[in-house]
Design a protein around this nucleic acid. Structure first.
Lengths: 197, 197
DNA sequence: TCATTGTTTGACAAAAATGTTAAACATTTA
DNA sequence: TAAATGTTTAACATTTTTGTCAAACAATGA
């Protein structure tokens, strides 16, 4: 079967990511996704066979994406702090687009538990920890388990975006105000991490 | 109808909170919840009329709980830093029990959008911001929008707990190791917030 | 004890979500 | 153009989830 590539398969997958990662509608049905994509629901089955398979692919690609974003910290050979600054810049821009990507992944992990971990991610994480440890040893970061640095960084970047509906309500913020705050956070997060206050 | 109170209604609601807030199984069905509670599924309808009503009550009480926890920051009249230290201590203990409470609330907000905000929470938040602003004015905190202090605090406390399945996998952690790290974070979070590194 | 009434259960019904199929449609290519 | 083949659609079927009801059960009180 020489696929004719009408872009529909990709459209459905991309729309599913919009719904799950961007809008955070984690209970969305195939009908919801088809509607959002403006296509007949049957096409979900035509291209993906089942809902589960669509979810599986979205999950898989979400994980791959995380993996790729992690790689970014490794490859460049610039000083640690600059590397982190640049990482925060890129990662936060992505997260502002898709705040619920990690939440989706975790929710799937919590409901399925038949998750296959990508072994090369462990290596990257170890590598990252080693980089942090080096900074600690050379006195540029306070003494602590390197995992805390990573946790701090991801927490400060992602969590406010997840809680957006709540913050908007509690602090009576417009979309513009919220976006402005998130952009400010790039700097704030960096300063928090390196203790330069 | 003089209720006989067999504790079943409360059991179902508590179990729902266990499933949603503790296990993070956000797609759980009424059957899942009934099974977890060890009761006949029909009792969910007997006591709550519909699934939606059970969810509504869990949502409502989850919000009330957040409200109460926020109040805690207001009432005591001890110095700001001590207040925050004590708050982190209590809040993190709660969050370790129910990591997905806020995630559940947000997911519901994202799917329903017919949320009625509790107006008195706005007041508490304003009060909290004023307290932070005072610290800033008196030079005990760096200059920034007080909302960032709140965002930093909640992010550092909650997000690592949400991501637990991922961190456990990436860093090859046992439950005990993870718990130990989370307890360490009480201190780390506090130091991050006040810049004492 | 026996009637009353609230609770629990299982069988059934309804609704919602997902999956299948055949026919209509569109594109390619011979 | 016409056959071949991939794509889309609507009708239908199946499965899953939710909701209803009457009968069984258990506790209370006259």
């Amino acid at each position: 079967m020489t696929t004719r590539d009408t872009g529909t398969e990709q459209l459905i997958k991309d729309t599913a990511k919009q719904v799950f990662f961007k809008e955070g509608r984690l209970h969305a049905t195939t009908q919801d996704i088809a509607d959002a994509a403006g296509v007949n629901r049957t096409l979900v089955n035509y291209y993906f066979r089942s809902r589960d398979e669509l979810i599986r692919q979205v999950y898989e690609e979400g994980m791959d994406d995380m993996d790729n974003r992690l790689s970014q910290i490794m490859e460049s050979d610039i000083p640690f702090r600059e590397k982190i600054e640049s990482f925060i810049d890129v990662f936060m821009a992505d997260s502002m687009e898709y705040p619920y990507q990690e939440t989706f992944l975790i929710t799937e992990m919590n409901t399925n538990s038949n998750l296959h971990n990508k072994p090369d991610m462990n290596l990257k994480v170890e590598n990252f920890s080693a980089q942090i440890q080096k900074e600690i040893d050379e006195g540029r970061l306070p003494k602590m388990d390197p995992i805390h640095f990573a946790m701090n960084m991801f927490s400060l970047m992602i969590y406010p975006l997840i809680m957006r509906p709540l913050y908007k309500q509690l602090y009576k913020l417009t979309n513009e105000q919220f976006t402005k705050l998130m952009l400010e956070r790039k700097d704030i997060t960096c300063k928090m991490l390196f203790g330069k206050q």
